[in-house]
Each structure stands twice: as C-alpha cells, then as structure tokens.
Amino acid sequence: MSAIVNRLAPANAVVPEQQPSAVAGLRLETRIVDGAEWDRTIAGFDEVCQEQLHVFATARWPSVKQEPMLFLADGQVVGGSLMMVQPLPLRIGHIAVSKWGPMLKDSSAPHAAALRDAMVEALIADYAERRGLMLSVLPRAALETDNSAYERLLARGFKRGSELGFPSRYIVRLGLSDAEQRKSLQQKWRYHLNKSEKAGLSFEHAGPERMGEFDRLYAAMSERKQFPDHSAYDTVPLLMALDIETLRPELFFVRHAGEVVAGALIFKAGDRAVYLYGATNDTALPLRAGYFMHWQIIRWLRDNTRAGWYDLGGTDGFHGLHQFKKGMVGEAGVITPVPPVANYAARPWAYLLGNGAFWARDAAYHIRRVVTGALRPKARPDQAPVVVEAGQP
C-alpha cells in the first residue's frame, strides 16, 4: 500500500448548499499517496496535465514539497490535486498551491461541479483551516464564456490574486473532418498551409529514442533566436522516460530533402492535448514547415487520442505568435484566458504573508522581463495586451 496518509475530510468539507449544483451531504475522503501511485492514477483523468504530474513537478520545483492528494467518494477516486507546499522567504511561513487543479477524473460526470466544490472544501479544511496556510488555486482555462470553476472560488470567499500579463490560451477544436478543419482555419493560415503542402515536406511520428535529434534542433533554434529559456525543458528527459505510455509526450518531425527541419513535443493525455515544445531550423520558415507540422499533428491527435481539444499555449507577448495561433484556432476553436490565481486564508496573517510573497515574485518577474528586453531586443514582447472573453476566437 503506497498511501502515506488516509483521512476523512472534516464534516465541513461539503458542497456549499448555496451553489445550484450542490449535492446534499456530499463528503470526500482525501488520501495523500506517493508519486508513482499518483502518476499512474491520474493518467486516466480527463483533466490530467503536465504540471500535475509528480515526475514533472519534483524536477521543476525541487525546493517545494509535493503532496499528491486523491479525492474519493464511496471508495472510488473522483479527482485529485497535486498540492505544492512552498516555503516563503526566510521560512516565515508556507503557501499551498494547486496549479491547474483540482482535477476531475470524469469532467462529464453527473454533478461534476459539485464534486469540484467538494474537493475545494476539502483543501480549505486541510490547508487553510487545519494547517493555517494560504491556499492558492489556479483553475485551467475554460472553454466556455465564463470560467465557472474560478467564479465559484470567488463565491466561496477566495480573493483575486496574481495574473499573467498575456493570459490568453489558444485552443484548437479536434474531432472535425479534414474538410471541416480546413474550413475553420483563417484564410491566411489556410493559404500558408496550402503552400507548405506543395513544398515537398514529410511528417514523421517518432519514438523517444530520437530525442537527441529534437534536442539538437531546439538548441540550435535557441541560439539563433537568442531568447532566454525560462521553460521547463530540462524536465523533458524525465517525461520521455516515463513507463506510463499515456503520459509520455509524443515526438513529431517534419523533413525536407532528407533533412529534419522542424519538430514538436505534444502532451496527449486527457481531454486536452497540449503543445509543449517546438523547434525549427533556418530553412523551415520559407518552407512554411510550422503550418504543415501543426496541421498533421491536429490530424494525428484526432485519429489517435481521446482529446477533444489541442491547447497551443500562450504567446508570451509576441504578436507574430498571436497571429499564427489565432489563425490555427480559426472559427471552431477558442481563445480563452487563464484566470487569475484565487487565494484563500482562514487567518489574516497567512493571507498577508502569502499575498506579499506573490507580489514580490511578480515584481521580480517584471524586472527580469524588462532587463531581458533591454539586453536582447528580439526577446522584447511586441503584442498589445489582449482582453478576450473565454470562448471567443
């Protein structure tokens, strides 16, 4: 038995009765498990994502304590949240963070919203009330006009916290026929795709043993663009070594005249596939290899996964990337914002400490971005802030 802790959430870990989807008396058991069991269990979740993987989080944030918490109803797992208990400067306290959580195992289950509420209540009871920490929850971007998960957090007493400078996520709808998908694309994107299909390009689905090729392509691109890499690329070897096939990213290449000119790594588990990393060489741009590659990835995901959506990520403030992704999202997809962090504390001092830590972190990120932009003009964002209602392309 790999469970480290097995406890019943207190009686107040129930769905708030004022919520319209409430199920009277719903109570969830919480169980903290080890990392291996956690990753195996969430591999089948609808809402699983890279950031919630234990193997990823421990490498990405090594100084943070990871607590993989499962939620059970009547003995059956219904959801989970990888809780990150992060120390504050000078060890004056801690905050508990749920990034892209809590996750539902079955997002289409009856009373799914009530289950999510019950998971939040269990987190409040444990981290905010019992331990006295500030609890920070960041739900994933919603596909609908309103992010109901975020709105329900605010209704429960959470306060709006930090937010991204460019929060929009660009999400392609999968499951369409080739003709329907092409029709959805913006006209200019479709024009470039047509050109790429006449350029003699070929598409390859590769195994993990070919990661060396992608590493070389990625390193060369980074050197060429001179962008500082603050990504989690150093976690890729661990992800590619996973023995859980569902969670292992998929590797794709585009070749021209015998040479690999573009590549991509895609997280495919759950109901949303996610574009993790891409790389191109000098000859890819005139060949429009990026258009060709993403078109083929969309078709591969449709035919080989259960994902209904393909999340292209954000833009980091670059207008050209905005234009490229917006054209691919087209009419059938959505451009939707990641909501701000939602913070909750049962004790005023915990909220002041936690909110102050977020403020200091945001200030440090802003300074780093300004300095980087001054030293490397190519890395300076050129996209005006975009306010997008969820669900609006």
Score class of each variant (00 low, 15 high):
residue 3 A to H: 04
residue 9 A to I: 13
residue 14 V to N: 00
residue 20 P to H: 14
residue 28 L to P: 00
residue 32 I to V: 13
residue 40 R to L: 15
residue 44 G to S: 12
residue 44 G to M: 12
residue 46 D to H: 08
residue 56 F to A: 06
residue 60 R to G: 13
residue 64 V to M: 07
residue 67 E to P: 01
residue 69 M to S: 02
residue 73 A to Y: 14
residue 73 A to P: 01
residue 75 G to C: 12
residue 76 Q to T: 14
residue 76 Q to H: 12
residue 77 V to L: 09
residue 92 I to A: 06
residue 92 I to C: 07
residue 93 G to D: 04
residue 104 L to G: 01
residue 108 S to A: 15
residue 110 P to H: 09
residue 117 D to M: 11
residue 118 A to R: 01
residue 119 M to C: 12
residue 120 V to C: 04
residue 124 I to W: 06
residue 125 A to C: 08
residue 126 D to Q: 11
residue 128 A to D: 05
residue 128 A to S: 10
residue 133 L to Y: 13
residue 133 L to C: 05
residue 135 L to R: 01
residue 139 P to C: 13
residue 142 A to T: 04
residue 145 T to Y: 15
residue 158 F to C: 10
residue 179 A to R: 03
residue 185 L to S: 06
residue 196 S to N: 11
residue 204 E to N: 07
residue 207 G to W: 13
residue 211 M to H: 10
residue 211 M to G: 06
residue 213 E to S: 09
residue 214 F to A: 00
residue 220 A to G: 03
residue 224 R to N: 03
residue 233 Y to D: 07
residue 236 V to K: 03
residue 243 D to R: 11
residue 246 T to P: 02
residue 249 P to R: 01
residue 260 V to L: 15
residue 271 D to K: 09
residue 272 R to A: 06
residue 276 L to G: 02
residue 277 Y to P: 00
residue 281 N to A: 07
residue 287 L to F: 12
residue 288 R to G: 07
residue 291 Y to M: 08
residue 297 I to Y: 06
residue 302 R to K: 01
residue 303 D to P: 00
residue 308 G to Q: 02
residue 308 G to H: 04
residue 311 D to W: 14
residue 317 G to S: 13
residue 327 G to A: 12
residue 328 M to P: 01
residue 340 P to D: 07
residue 344 Y to V: 06
residue 345 A to R: 00
residue 348 P to S: 12
residue 349 W to R: 05
residue 350 A to G: 02
residue 352 L to N: 02
residue 353 L to Q: 04
residue 356 G to N: 04
residue 360 A to M: 15
residue 365 Y to P: 01
residue 369 R to P: 06
residue 371 V to R: 07
residue 375 L to N: 01
residue 380 R to T: 12
residue 381 P to G: 05
residue 391 G to Y: 12
residue 391 G to W: 14
residue 392 Q to T: 10
residue 392 Q to L: 13
